[in-house]
Write a protein that binds this DNA or RNA. Structure first.
Length: 257
DNA sequence: ATGGCATTTGATAAATGA
């Protein structure tokens, strides 16, 4: 069972790459962020033709999330029911006995801005809701673009990022509060190469110089973490023509006992 | 180097991203 998260930075532009990637990486579940599409423009037929069920919630220009699945999708929830939000950043569903939550956590712009306080309020409410969801669903996975680099290991140059969003103590504390609910950062369950990142700036040769940050994560509840046998970043599609600035991150679970 | 690049929009410069 393979679970992937990928911020595609416009599904309109990136649909061919998503389909191409799925051909060689036929994962069970793919959580997508930043579709940037209203629901009437979502390429449902193309995705279904590729052999995937799909659910989505989107808006014009910004945000938008979707879950693609080889297995039937049930009990779909759009957005956090505890957090009034016009921005479409969450979609959750039950798939193959797991509660799958796909999230595009706010960027936060910069500490001290309105967007930053929105991010912190958003995360606080996510935590409250997740606690309820975990009580209902022991098998839970939270996949997405967190816009948080949890540790200095997750930043190419921590000194250069000092004082920025993605790395601030407030954001890292919010991330650790999610972990404290009983979630595991599947990437850190395993030995990983140093300087493994999931996002690289389009500018200033970010990818070529590996000036990245690790902000896309697959968090697993304890029963799923116990089944997890790998978690890795696939840098290949970041090298393609006109790529997303994010790479897909995949966790693999062995079958339940 | 308060820029650099990509995407979107009742575009044609501005906002947003991270």
């Amino acid at each position: 069972m393979k679970l992937t998260t990928w911020n595609v930075n416009s599904l309109k532009v990136r649909l061919p790459q998503v389909l191409q990637w799925l051909q060689t990486n036929p994962v069970d579940i793919l959580c997508i962020q930043e579709t940037k599409l209203t629901d009437d423009k979502f390429p449902q037929a193309e995705i279904e033709a590729a052999g995937y069920h799909v659910v989505y919630t989107g808006q014009k220009t910004y945000n938008g999330v979707a879950i693609l699945s080889r297995h039937p999708i049930e009990d779909v929830q759009k957005n956090n029911p505890l957090f009034e939000d016009e921005q479409q950043r969450i979609i959750a569903a039950t798939i193959a006995g797991m509660r799958i939550i796909c999230a595009y956590i706010p960027n936060g712009q910069a500490p001290g801005t309105d967007k930053f306080s929105y991010k912190l309020r958003w995360l606080e409410s996510l935590e409250t809701w997740l606690q309820q969801e975990m009580a209902k669903h022991p098998n839970l996975a939270l996949l997405g673009d967190y816009n948080i680099a949890p540790d200095d290991r997750d930043v190419h140059d921590p000194a250069a990022w000092e004082g920025m969003n993605l790395v601030s103590p407030e954001e890292r504390t919010a991330f650790q509060r999610l972990i404290a609910l009983g979630l595991s950062d599947s990437f850190r369950q395993f030995e990983q190469a140093e300087k493994t990142f999931s996002w690289w700036d389009y500018r200033a040769l970010g990818f070529r110089l590996n000036k990245g940050v690790r902000i896309d994560h697959v968090l697993l509840s304890a029963p799923l973490a116990q089944r997890c046998i790998s978690c890795s970043v696939d840098r290949v599609p970041r090298k393609w023509e006109q790529p997303s600035d994010h790479a897909p991150v995949t966790a693999e679970l062995k079958p339940a006992e």
